[in-house]
Simulated assay, not measured.
Amino acid sequence: MLRKSILVAALLAGLSATPSLAHRQWLHPSATVLSGDKAWVTVDAAVSNDLFYFEHVPMRLDNVKVWQPDGTEGKMQNPATGRYRSVFDVELNQQGTWKIGTSMAGIMGSYKLNGEQKRLPRGAAAADLAKLIPAGATDVQISENSSRNEIFVTAGAPTNTVLKPTGKGLEVEWLTHPNDLVSGEPAKLRFLADGKPAAGIDVEVVPGGVRYRDKLNDRTLKTDANGVLTIEFPAPGMYWLEAQLQDGNASVPGATQRRLTYITTLEVLAP
């Protein structure tokens, strides 16, 4: 009986711990709403189990870009990568809303050669596909991948130039400005896949500070028929959102499916 009780307790502990084991990639700004002509923001970038705590690996900065309020490219300053996190500064020398983040596309896949299973190298580009699959390969399976991870920071009054969707991959049309979020008030986001409403997709919402509570407090919400997600944040703080869409609309020749991902970190202020 004692052995059975121990096994049951271990199983329950394992089940309750499972959600926190997911590695999440995130960008965390020191602030999202600032004033003055000489404002700066510091951004932490990492991949971890707990939001927003550094305990796994740093997020590499090679693909991180900065967009100024007028839509032109800005720059990172003082970039550094340590054991558990990367960090950089951005000088907000234009008034308005800035975008900071990554946008990446590539392929994943596998094949068999002489009966042995092989995988495409990590970060493979679609343009190199013909060279990556050797003659005589069988059981070729290719998946197209596209991901965005972005945050928004406003100096002075909010603007909308950097919020405009590009029509490529999974994006958000911000019906509520991302730097105008207040706890207890509903916000609306329209998710778009290649510029068209992404209906019925799941969006995971996780409040920060996971390390200091015994429950993840995550929610999985679903977009409506028009791709709109209506969300109310119960308390002020930083929140991590991730949306994923898998379908068969791959644009890469030979790919049978594609996976689109959108990630953002949002600051919700008190009323």
Rank of each mutant, 00 (worst) to 15 (best):
P158G: 11
Y111N: 05
E144A: 10
Q94P: 02
A155Y: 02
T154M: 04
A124N: 11
L27N: 02
R119V: 14
P165D: 09
G254L: 12
S146L: 11
D224H: 04
E171N: 06
E73M: 10
L2H: 08
S251M: 11
K99R: 15
A45E: 03
Y262H: 15
K118A: 10
T42W: 07
L170V: 09
E55C: 08
L129Y: 10
I263L: 12
I133W: 08
P79V: 08
I151G: 05
I231D: 05
R259Y: 07
K131W: 02
I201Q: 02
Q257Y: 11
I107Q: 07
K65G: 08
D214F: 13
V228K: 02
V182T: 14
T72R: 14
I133N: 06
F52A: 13
Q246G: 05
M108W: 05
E173W: 00
V206Y: 04
K75H: 08
L15H: 00
V33W: 06
V162N: 00
D70S: 07
G36V: 09
S86K: 00
A137V: 08
Q117F: 11
L245R: 14
G136Q: 11
A46Q: 12
F152I: 05
K131Q: 15
W26R: 07
G167Y: 09
L15C: 09
A137K: 08
A243G: 07
M104N: 13
V162Y: 09
M238Q: 15
W174R: 04
P58M: 04
K188F: 09
V206F: 01
R119C: 05
S48F: 00
K215D: 13
G74Q: 05
A126K: 11
R24D: 00
S146G: 15
T138Y: 06
G96F: 05
K164I: 11
K65T: 14
A193Y: 03
M1Y: 00
T261R: 15
P236S: 11
Y53H: 15
A10W: 01
P271S: 15
V210N: 06
I263E: 12
L245H: 03
R148I: 02
A31F: 07
N249M: 11
P236G: 10
D214P: 03
H28D: 15
G227Q: 10
A243Y: 01
L51I: 15
V66N: 05
G156P: 09
G71A: 10
V268A: 02
P197V: 05
L241K: 07
L163M: 06
V182A: 14
F152T: 02
I231K: 01
A235D: 14
N93Q: 09
T159H: 11
E55P: 00
G36R: 04
L11I: 13
A157G: 00
P253C: 04
A127Y: 12
R119E: 15
L61E: 07
L51Q: 07
S251I: 12
P165C: 09
G254W: 13
A31C: 00
E55L: 00
L27I: 04
Y262A: 06
G200P: 07
K65L: 03
L129A: 02
T81R: 05
V33E: 14
P158I: 10
